[in-house]
């Protein structure tokens, strides 16, 4: 499969998602190109997390299609919409890294074992090689000095940086970040954002849900504003954050101005 810089890594089409009777995503269209950093803004309950979780199929969805690297997510491509099955879902997830608000490191494993888990258990990489690559990733997020510590011995910011390294170890095509700094003490937010900034500069494709307006302004190639399960507005941060086209986005920005 040949690809060019303009190929979308993630492509979401007419995505509809309901929890029972509650329709949470009401037709989302989103393309993310290779190397692009898309920041998703929106009020609580607008469906940001749900959209991310659909992209690696942690949530099922009722209609629409998603592809990652050209591979269908969740359901066969075409008209039949047969579920892909757990094995093929797992295969797609190998290419999608996800970092959660609550870190979710494996508490019974050391830091380096957390980072090695994916390569060793999923890609069957030899342990020695996985360890070597894992240490390099830990160095990159500034956590190699804690390789043999357990997650419970680390601060939130440290845990989150390890969680980023754990995802990167799978060499994903795209990284999803769901409010990864929201659970952190204010003084720890910076160290995590710095790692994310570094990834963006290296050309990692990223979809970032955050309330950090500064990060959106400075790092995003494109900002997407969601409200009520639809994308209300999108564009370059310099344009739409300076001059929102819709009242809803304008109000959202002024409510979150202090950041």
């Amino acid at each position: 499969m040949t690809s060019t810089a303009s190929d979308p890594i993630v492509s979401v089409r007419k995505l509809h998602k309901s929890f029972d009777k509650l329709e949470v995503l009401k037709g989302i269209d989103l393309d993310v190109r290779r190397g692009e950093v898309v920041v998703v803004l929106g009020p609580s309950g607008s469906g940001k997390s749900t959209m991310l979780r659909c992209i690696n199929f942690l949530e099922t969805f009722q209609s629409g299609t998603i592809t990652v690297d050209g591979r269908p997510v969740g359901y066969e491509a075409g008209d039949h919409r047969r579920p892909l099955g757990e094995a093929r879902n797992a295969k797609v997830r190998e290419h999608v890294g996800m970092v959660f608000q609550s870190y979710n490191l494996f508490p019974h494993r050391t830091v380096i074992e957390n980072v090695m888990m994916g390569p060793v258990k999923v890609k069957k990489v030899a342990r020695a090689l996985a360890r070597e690559k894992g240490m390099a990733l830990l160095a990159k997020v500034g956590m190699d000095h804690k390789a043999d510590a357990y997650p419970g011995q680390l601060s939130g910011g440290q845990q989150q940086r390890v969680a980023i390294a754990r995802s990167l170890a799978m060499e994903p095509s795209v990284m999803l970040f769901d409010e990864v700094t929201s659970a952190l003490d204010p003084e720890l937010v910076g160290e995590v954002l710095k790692v994310m900034r570094g990834l963006a500069q290296e050309g990692m494709t990223m979809i970032v849900v955050t309330h950090e307006m500064g990060f959106a302004r400075q790092v995003a190639d494109r900002v997407v504003f969601m409200d009520g399960g639809v994308i209300v507005e999108e564009g370059a941060p310099g344009d739409i954050m300076a001059a929102p086209k819709t009242e809803r986005f304008g109000n959202f920005l002024s409510r979150n101005l202090d950041q």
Binding site: A87, R93, G97, F100, M117, G118, K121, V122, S167
Partner: peptide, 11 residues
Amino acid sequence: QGEAARALGMS
């Protein structure tokens, strides 16, 4: 915990 594992591609 299960979600984090599945997100890594674990079966």
